[in-house]
Computed example of a mutant assay.
Amino acid sequence: MQYRFITILFTIVLFSCQSQEKELPFYNTPDFTPIFLNNEKDIDRKITHEINDFSFLDQHNQQITQKDIEGKIHVANFIFTSCGSICPVMTNHMKIIDQEFSDDQEVAILSYSVTPWIDNVEVLQEYTEKQQIQSKNWHFLTGDKSEIYQLARQSYFAEEDLGFTKDSTDFLHTEHVILVDADKRIRGIYNGTIKLDMRQLAKDIEALKAEKKKNIFG
Rank of each mutant, 00 (worst) to 15 (best):
S19F: 04
S19R: 13
Q20W: 11
Q20I: 08
Q20T: 11
K22W: 07
K22Y: 10
E23N: 13
E23Y: 04
P25E: 05
P25F: 03
P25C: 10
P25G: 07
P25M: 07
F26C: 01
F26M: 05
F26D: 00
F26W: 04
F26Y: 11
F26P: 00
F26G: 00
Y27S: 01
Y27N: 09
Y27F: 15
Y27C: 10
N28W: 07
N28D: 10
N28G: 01
T29D: 15
T29H: 12
T29K: 08
P30N: 05
P30M: 02
P30A: 00
P30Y: 07
P30S: 02
P30D: 04
D31W: 09
D31L: 07
D31M: 08
D31A: 10
D31K: 08
F32L: 13
F32S: 08
F32R: 11
F32D: 10
T33P: 06
T33K: 13
T33S: 14
P34W: 11
P34I: 10
P34D: 12
P34L: 12
P34A: 12
I35V: 15
F36N: 00
F36M: 03
F36Q: 02
L37N: 04
L37Q: 06
L37G: 05
L37Y: 04
N38K: 12
N38S: 05
N39I: 06
E40T: 02
K41T: 14
K41C: 08
K41Q: 12
D42R: 06
D42A: 13
I43Y: 06
I43G: 07
I43V: 14
D44A: 15
D44G: 09
D44K: 10
R45E: 15
R45G: 09
R45S: 15
K46S: 13
K46T: 13
K46M: 14
I47T: 05
I47L: 09
I47P: 00
T48P: 09
E50V: 12
E50F: 15
E50T: 15
I51M: 13
I51T: 06
I51A: 07
I51P: 01
N52R: 14
N52S: 15
N52H: 11
D53L: 11
D53F: 06
D53Q: 14
D53C: 05
F54L: 04
S55I: 03
S55K: 14
S55G: 10
S55V: 02
L57I: 00
L57M: 07
L57V: 02
L57S: 01
D58G: 04
D58M: 02
D58S: 04
D58E: 03
D58V: 06
Q59N: 03
Q59K: 02
H60K: 15
H60L: 08
H60F: 10
H60Q: 12
H60D: 08
N61Q: 11
N61F: 03
Q62R: 14
Q62H: 12
Q62S: 10
Q62L: 08
Q62G: 03
Q62P: 02
Q62F: 05
Q63D: 00
Q63N: 08
I64F: 01
I64C: 01
I64S: 04
T65I: 03
Q66R: 14
Q66C: 04
